[in-house]
């Protein structure tokens, strides 16, 4: 007897499940977004606002890193790939780019550190191992604990390109895998130096002036702060109408205001 009941219940669940999947496919248009973890919060916010206005669209925003975003959109697995670094030449040919905002990379130290600013050259020397003591850059006599991101991180590749140039980040640098763990380490270690995205920068750590310019939305918008990178939405070829409409929304004044509320510098500024 009980096995018959069980069979009945399973059947009902299957029917309901099938019903939900079939009807939801008819009802919703889906947009799949994946890529840079630094773009993710902004993309999430934009998606929420867009879904509120257009209840028949479902947008799914995932992380995974800029590399994954570029790879997946090139393979056609997702509709929009996000990236926090600019594309290389071959990728530029294959993909359409939409600049939705600009971000800066903050060189972060502990609040107790008396150093206020460094030149780009000094930062490079610290990261490639030429300078190992804070006293060489006007700080106390203490070893510099250099913290970096993992090879492949979007933030790291921007830092590498703009600050390091051809020089390599020294092999002894501590590698941490998220912005938050860098914030935590810099917060706790008076001799640490790290780099994080401006969107995650809060007052419990100290941002350094680079070449005399303090990182802020203004200095990034007017281009005077040197270490900055684009937030890109990428599509393969011409996007389908619903995706196009979402991107237009992101670039509209309303969307750009949302971008700004996430501490990202709007593209239009």
């Amino acid at each position: 007897m009980s096995s018959k009941y069980l069979l009945g219940i399973v059947l009902i669940i299957i029917i309901i499940g099938a019903y939900i999947t079939i009807t939801s496919e008819n009802k919703y248009e889906r947009i799949e977004i994946a890529g840079s973890t630094s773009v993710q919060p902004v993309a999430d916010k934009l998606a929420q606002a867009y879904m509120k206005k257009n209840p028949n669209v479902k947008i799914n925003v995932q992380g995974g890193g800029s590399g994954l975003g570029i790879r997946s959109v090139t393979q056609g697995i997702i509709d929009i790939g996000t990236s926090s670094k600019d594309l290389n030449a071959t990728e530029k040919e294959e993909l359409n780019r939409y600049l939705i905002g600009k971000d800066g990379i903050v060189i972060a130290v502990n609040v107790e550190n008396p150093v206020d600013g460094l030149s780009k050259g000094q930062i490079r020397d610290i990261y490639d191992g030429n300078i190992t003591n804070w006293k060489d850059v006007g700080g106390p006599d203490a070893k510099i604990n250099v913290i970096t991101r993992e090879d492949g991180s979007g933030t790291r590749s921007v830092f590498q390109k703009i600050v390091m140039g051809k020089n390599k980040i020294k092999a002894e640098a501590i590698v941490l895998t998220s912005t938050e763990s860098i914030v935590q380490s810099v917060k706790g270690d008076p001799n640490a130096i790290g780099y994080i995205s401006l969107t995650s920068f809060k007052s419990d750590i100290k941002g350094l002036k680079v070449d005399g310019v303090y990182p802020s939305e203004q200095t990034i918008a007017n281009g005077s702060y040197a270490i900055q990178n684009p937030f890109l939405f990428l599509t393969k070829g011409e996007p389908k109408p619903v995706v196009k409409d979402f991107i237009d929304f992101c670039l509209s004044p309303e969307g750009q205001a949302l971008v700004e509320s996430e501490k990202v510098v709007p593209a239009s500024m």
Binding site: G67, L68, R71, D151, G152, S153, T177
Partner: peptide, 9 residues
């Protein structure tokens, strides 16, 4: 593996 998987190509 875990650190670099997300980015590797």
């Amino acid at each position: 593996i875990a650190i670099e998987m997300g980015y590797a190509t």
